[in-house]
Simulated assay, not measured.
Amino acid sequence: MQIEPGVSLKPYNTFGLPAVAGQLVRIRAEADVRAVVDHPELGLAPKFVLGGGSNVILTRDMPELVLKVEILGKRLVAETDKAVIVEFGAGERWHDAVAWTLDQGWPGLENMALIPGTVGAAPVQNIGAYGLELQDRFESLDTVDLVTGRTVTLNAAQCKFAYRNSIFKQALAGKSLITRVRLRLPKPWQPMLGYLDLERKMEETGNHQPDARTIFDWVCSIRSAKLPDPARIGNVGSFFKNPVVTPEQCRDIIARDPHVVHYPLEDGRFKLAAGWLIDACGWKGKTVGHAGVYDKQALVLVNRGGAIGSEVQTLARAIQESVYGRFGIRLEMEPVMV
């Protein structure tokens, strides 16, 4: 275990925000976590787990011990006539993991292509896109308790998955570190195409029976057209969750603005498009300090160059107040504000 003092975290968060870790330890194996836990000083120190930095807004320097997860590895765990189970180290890039499964002939993750971040962070956020969420493909994961150093395996029920939420953002926040994640890819494969952007692709191309690789390419194309590349423009992808409302709330909003984008859910409620609500309030392209709203997608906040965390925080809160004032809906942020 190597302790690195005074490490800049700017390269390690996709918004490109300046912050310094007083101490940083790179976690490349479970043994590294146990070494931290057993250390006479570090074991008692407050800890902050950092994956790909794609779901965090840093508003300050970090006095906590930063544990940078860099555990690699990918393998086939089992294959039956019903499913393929694959395992990834928590430090693997999520998009690379999706591409690897397709390269092996194991479809099932293609709808979640090009989502930024690491595999270990995916269960924390219960990431999802184009009709598919991580929980739909989840098998189990290994996590190390940051107090006892004990390794625990959790199934889907124990992870308490919800919309962009899990036990790792609730009861286990800051108390455990995910080391490995296993995913179940069902057989036979069935495409998931019930999403407007994918339906448009089918109409444009005339291909109404796309294979998994085609869907992967479509998703990459759609996301690239809508969302900025974090390597070029700092961002964390979608900044706000799509709010879920009752039928009564939805009817009330439609009565005020019949163009509101909304989707029915199986439980009778409706999901509203947060990006549409923000755009309707006139925020697309606007800037506060060096933080702004992306001019191609109002759901994305971006670093215009030299942004600091407090500017992002101010912009996000202004958007929340604006949407609440017009629609009576309180938008919830997806990234963690630190």
Rank of each mutant, 00 (worst) to 15 (best):
A157L: 12
A113Q: 05
G51P: 03
A83I: 04
L67Y: 04
Q209G: 12
W189A: 13
G6C: 11
Y195L: 03
G237L: 13
T80R: 03
A291N: 08
V147K: 15
D103M: 10
V69G: 01
G174V: 10
K201R: 15
I127R: 02
A157Y: 08
V49D: 07
L114F: 10
V124S: 00
H290C: 12
P264R: 11
V56W: 10
L185F: 01
K296H: 14
S322Y: 04
G6M: 14
L272Q: 06
P18I: 15
I222G: 13
P188K: 04
K160I: 05
G234H: 00
W189P: 04
A273D: 04
E41P: 00
I222E: 10
P40E: 10
L114H: 08
H262K: 13
W189R: 07
T287H: 13
V7A: 06
L67D: 08
M192N: 09
D229T: 11
T80Q: 05
R93K: 06
V86F: 10
V336K: 10
T214R: 04
H290Q: 14
G43E: 11
Y12M: 12
A255S: 15
G91T: 05
V338W: 03
P247R: 10
M192F: 01
D96L: 07
D136E: 13
P230E: 12
P264K: 09
G89V: 02
Q209R: 06
P247C: 09
R232F: 11
E70R: 11
V49C: 08
P11K: 06
V36F: 06
N13D: 07
A273Y: 08
I71C: 04
S54Y: 02
R213M: 14
Q104N: 07
Q313P: 04
S322V: 04
F240W: 00
L9M: 08
G120Q: 06
M1T: 14
I85A: 00
H95R: 01
T246I: 11
E110C: 08
A121T: 09
S166F: 03
G237F: 15
A307I: 11
